[in-house]
Amino acid sequence: MIEIENLHKKFGKNQVLSHLDLHINEGGIFAVLGPNGSGKTTLIKSILGMVVPNKGNLTVLGASVRKNWKYRQEIDYLPQIANFPGNLKVRELIRMIKDLRQKPSREQELITLFGLEPFLDKKLATLSGGTKQKVNIVLTFMFDSPLIILDEPTTGLDPASLIKLKELILQEKGKGKTILITTHIMQFVEEMADKIVYLLEGNIYFKGTIDELMAKTEQSDFEHAIAAISTHTTNA
C-alpha cells in the first residue's frame, strides 16, 4: 500500500526526516506515534504530497507520489485543524468537495450519524470547534477510498461522537481498508491500533504491534511502554 525508501526532508537547517524506510501493507489500523517534532506530520504530508521530499522514493498504491496528484483520489485525509473557508455553508462545503472528487459518497448517512442536520445551512465560521471537527469527519469518511489518513481525529469531540468515530473507523477497517492515525491519546491507540509506527528524530524507531512493543520495552502497560521508549532513548 505505501512504500517509502530512504526518505529525506529538511526544513532549512532542520533535518526532519532522514533515511526513513517504511512499508505499510494493505489492511489494518496503523498508529503513527512519536514525541513532538519527531516528524509525524511531515511523514503524513509527504505521503499526501503536501511536503516535497529532498530525497527518496515514495509510492502509494503503486504510484510514485512525485509530481503526481491523481493517486490522492484513493486517499481520504482528515487534517489536523479543520479551519474551512468561513464564508461557505456546511452544505456548500460538502457539495464542493464532492464536486472536486467526483466520486460516489454517503454524506447523508454520516450527517445523520453525527446529528449535523441543524448546521447544514450555517456558515462554517460560526461553528464551534467540535462541530467543525464533525464536519471534517463527514468530509473524510463520505468517500470510499482504500487509504484513510487521520491527523488527530479526536480533537474537540464529545464522548458520544468519539464512540461513533471509533465505530466508523472499525467499520472501515472491516472493509479491508488501510487507516493511518496520528494521535496523542494513548487510550485511543491502544483500543484501535493494530500496529504502531514509532517515529523518533526523523526515523522509524519501532514498528510492530502493541504486544511487541510491550515485550520490547518490558512493560505491561501501553502508556508506560510509550513513555519508556522516550526515556530509553533520552538515556541512550
Partner: peptide, 12 residues
Amino acid sequence: KEFTELLLAQPL
C-alpha cells in the same frame, strides 16, 4: 491557508 491545505489533500 486552511482552505488551501484542504484542497492540497484532494486529488488536484
